[in-house]
Design a protein around this nucleic acid. Structure first.
Lengths: 141, 141
DNA sequence: TTTAATGCAAACTGTTTGCAGCTCT
DNA sequence: AGAGCTGCAAACAGTTTGCATTAAA
């Protein structure tokens, strides 16, 4: 089921701003703030309003296509709610984000923490911050 | 080493607003926004300025006495920091945050990811979201 | 006495809302 | 054609900054 159908199915429409927001998020694959989504859309020669970005993000979150995530400095980050959960290392200098593997199964950890705290857990956030190889070289000079 | 000494040692002063913010946080034991810290201080008949709350929180965070945590709705939450790096489970309903143990040593994980990606990592974010025991009960009714 | 810290007011930044006009189905 | 959607402008909320005054050491 594509985006078009998913929207129409709910009496909603696939409009230009919505397409743009989706494709920016698809291209980025790291959490982006509403502001930077807007920025990137302009850089891609796609003139959409900032207000539409906000409204579109609300809608897409509602539909479960996008997930809201909290970074350290940036509180309102949105990422594609991609099938399967990914974790990233984010470069604090150039913002590059690289996925890392080997943490696909956090369910054991989740179970232990549920037992320990009594919480029921349905979501998590695991992200590392540092410098990517390119920015490390730059710093050394 | 008490707060007084810890401040004086750095050429800083133990003032009324700082005492109030600390005692509000000690009493609360869940993350509070600057606004609600201010609110509670007024309710306790302690007249301090909102601006001082912001500045005090920055200072206490700097000193490592207080830690900033990210809730789902409330982005700027502050809790008393217990020694060492801790991770939290955050209740999406009442915003209660509970520390969990057993992940004190992420250094092995960090090393593996550094080797895998070439990044140098100096910070991380690990947080779980769900419902605390009290809110689970509430939901069931 | 000295200098850090406070608190007001004003500037800012990011987000939300009202409304007239536009566009997707 | 008609309901949903856009985008502007204006309102709003939370946070930060400048500056004269106060108070901790």
């Amino acid at each position: 089921m594509n985006l078009q159908d998913q929207l129409n199915h709910n009496g909603l429409r696939l409009t230009h701003p919505r397409q743009v927001v989706m494709s920016v998020l698809e291209a980025a694959n790291i959490p982006l703030s509403p502001q930077s989504i807007h920025q990137r859309s302009l850089e891609a020669q796609e003139e959409i309003g900032l207000v539409s970005v906000y409204r579109t993000l609300d809608l897409l979150t509602e539909l479960g296509l996008v997930r809201r995530v909290h970074g350290h400095e940036e509180c309102q980050g949105y990422v594609l709610a991609s099938p399967g959960h990914h974790h990233h290392v984010v470069c604090r200098q150039c913002e590059a984000a690289v996925e890392f593997t080997g943490m696909e199964d956090v369910s054991l950890l989740v179970e232990r923490i549920q037992a320990q705290t009594g919480f029921t857990i349905d979501e998590h956030l695991l992200q590392f911050y540092g410098l990517c190889p390119a920015c490390q070289e730059e710093v050394e000079r």
